[in-house]
């Protein structure tokens, strides 16, 4: 920890949470407004990179879903691929999306296979690009004293 910046390490904790929440918000608003899984995923990657710069790549990796970059990538890819199947089974083209509306008292909740697809993209982008970024940052860490081994 000696070579790291104290202010960054302190600020990283709240910022990490804020960025992740913002990325989820961008993911969810993607239905009707600019946003979606890809952009949201990229924002989540920036949170991971922030944590890696502040606390090292090993700590950043441990904070990823399931503690590794590959799992979110794989689960996201499978989720996105499978989200197209219900439409196919219903007789439409692949990735024909289905919508359901849940009435919750005054509000209503829109659920859809699009959301599954977007969450899949979000996880895939987050996992895959965070994996690349952490691997690249780790190359640098090897050379500096106080960095992770």
């Amino acid at each position: 920890m000696t070579s790291r910046i104290v202010i960054l390490a302190v600020v990283a904790r709240p910022l990490y949470l804020v960025i992740l929440l913002a990325s989820v918000w961008v993911l969810l608003r993607g239905h009707d407004e600019p946003g979606g899984g890809f952009i949201g995923g990229l924002m989540a990657v920036s949170a991971t990179i922030l944590w890696a710069v502040a606390h090292g790549t090993a700590a950043a990796r441990a904070r990823l879903p399931l503690g590794d970059a590959l799992w979110p990538a794989v689960i996201g890819l499978l989720l996105a691929a499978l989200s197209g199947v219900p439409g196919l089974l219903g007789g439409g083209a692949y990735l024909t999306h289905l919508w359901w509306t849940l009435a919750l008292g005054p509000a209503e909740l829109k659920l859809s296979t699009v959301l599954l697809f977007d969450i899949g993209v979000y996880l895939a982008v987050w996992g895959a690009l965070a994996g690349y970024a952490l691997a690249l940052l780790a190359v640098d860490e090897r050379d500096q004293p106080g960095g992770a081994p």
Binding site: G92, A93, Y94
Partner: peptide
């Protein structure tokens, strides 16, 4: 395609 057909699929219909 050997039957002379061109396959087209439009994602999401």
């Amino acid at each position: 395609v050997l039957t002379g057909e061109t396959l087209v699929v439009a994602f999401g219909g």
